[in-house]
Design a binder for these strands. Sequence first.
DNA 1: CTGTTAGCGCGTTCAA
DNA 2: TTGAACGCGCTAACAG
Lengths: 346, 346
Amino acid sequence: MTARRGSGPTMHDVGKLAQVSAMTVSRVLKNDPGVSEATRERVFAAVDRLGYRRNQTARSLRLGGSGMIGLVVTNLANPFYSRLALGVQEVATEYGFRMLLSNSAEQADREPDIIDGLVDHQVEGLIVVPAGSRQQHLADAMRHVPVVLAARPPAGLDTDCVLVEDFHGAREATACLLADGHTRIAFLGNPPALYTGAERLRGFWAAHEEVGVEPAHALIRQGLVDSATAERATLELLKAAERPTALFCTNNRISQGAIRALYKAGTTLPIAGFDDFDLSDVLGLPLTLVSYDADEIGRRAARLLIDRLEHRDAAPPASRRVTVATRVVRHGVTSGDEQGRPAADA
Amino acid sequence: MTARRGSGPTMHDVGKLAQVSAMTVSRVLKNDPGVSEATRERVFAAVDRLGYRRNQTARSLRLGGSGMIGLVVTNLANPFYSRLALGVQEVATEYGFRMLLSNSAEQADREPDIIDGLVDHQVEGLIVVPAGSRQQHLADAMRHVPVVLAARPPAGLDTDCVLVEDFHGAREATACLLADGHTRIAFLGNPPALYTGAERLRGFWAAHEEVGVEPAHALIRQGLVDSATAERATLELLKAAERPTALFCTNNRISQGAIRALYKAGTTLPIAGFDDFDLSDVLGLPLTLVSYDADEIGRRAARLLIDRLEHRDAAPPASRRVTVATRVVRHGVTSGDEQGRPAADA
DNA sequence: CTGTTAGCGCGTTCAA
DNA sequence: TTGAACGCGCTAACAG
């Protein structure tokens, strides 16, 4: 029933049953034309009888190339990353690769071991959402296989990467709030050490400068790591002397924490934020969300990687940077509507 | 830079540099005690210099056992399955296994090829959320490796599986609505061919019988596959002559579709449903949700699988069935509150 | 303490 | 049209 490690019939076994050599079995399974129809059939019959399956491990060893790519994400529970994984999977499958998936749980110190393990398993390439800013282990990995970064850029590494329009998206969403007349917009951000955190803050800032509004320095909170910390930060801001008239959140979890805080406080404020999320359209809140196709990040990353794998012999192209477009979607607020506007300046 | 297929230094290369045989390198890397400290150091130095990594493919071939398990889910974009994957990953990592992940996209006809490919890649075991009711390919796979089913039970297969309390959860949530006085509860269900669909309907039904209320046959809709179909079905029910006073939804996507329909129709009804989801607590709707730990399903499945892997020699235990507990959480409705109660019977 | 031999399952190369 | 020999990179078993 349950096979012992590495048991199962081999080509030799199949050959014995079909009264040919293992070599001929190999030829049949490879659709090599130089095999008589009679033996083909005998071989296939034997394959069926034994439930034989070709050992991909042995093939990999002989042929080189495991047919696997590695994907490392920081948090698979976040729909953003599970969709990214889905995109990778889609393209990988299309090109005959399988996906070895690891979750770093946003712990940068675990990442090196994960990457090493993936390299040991002979993945032909890696797609990584780097958890930290130290990327030496990625440089090490690049000695073995090509690496593509997703969602966050390389830090001193010469590698392909796929990013979203972090700056542009944040600026545009913030501009919407400013256009509605808000001048005291709180900023709820993830750790500024993360590229996305820094970049989205920059966009937030730029939008202010463009309309000549001074950002509300006292209302800037960074280093929020999840929904719970965002909720607490929001509750504090609501109690502040200089209360914000709107919120900007740098990702979906932070938006959700802010929404929960508002709900508990029994109040409402317009929110702009990065990442769309389920049910955002039915909350009845004035939401301005930076939406984009997370699957597409994965697909693009996989294509960049596989492109390198398919041109291993050619001179490797210079590292490429691809950007996935964002667009702003607004819920619960019509242009010219009262709902999204700040209360009188008191 | 980018290595050619299967290139990279070998133990032999390391040995040459350290002036020992490949065998000694192998011993050092295995922490074999019988190696002099001097040579250990020379070997490690050589490993560092060359950036050597042990080839897991070759080890697998030699030792048997690839160190990989395969996971097949139906829809990674659904947080339920991404959390399940996370649970599998967690336990797999703990026991030194890596996870080869595939998404069947709920297409039963693709599943056999996926499974075959995983077996070819020498996964030591499989965890599968089966997409269909035909499971012959799983029986085939079981000739090679142990298989554990998750979320849905085996159909005529002798295999371990991990389920949630589908019947119990559905009954309990329905009972809440009935206790609130509802007698016309619409049922919005996924395809009845799916185990969960059938089982949750059974629970819905049982709850009615227990209190002697006839289920509202005209209000039963099945075969809903996503949020959009659920939304349409809900809108139709709202227009029906015999309008429901509450809804029961068999999964998170259906609940969300129903919520969207209510929102668009500008109305509100109490909803009971399977699966909790993000922001369910801040919708301000009377929600009665069957909540459970999706990660735990993955963890339990992985443990069942790895348990078999670690006792390959022993007589395989009879197939086991594990159930993950559900609990009902209620939002926006306090006991004795008016909000969740049906309007007067007109 | 270290090296040699042999073979995991397969496919390339060469010979029949 | 088929088969035999060899080796992919590694390690158990057996020398020395």
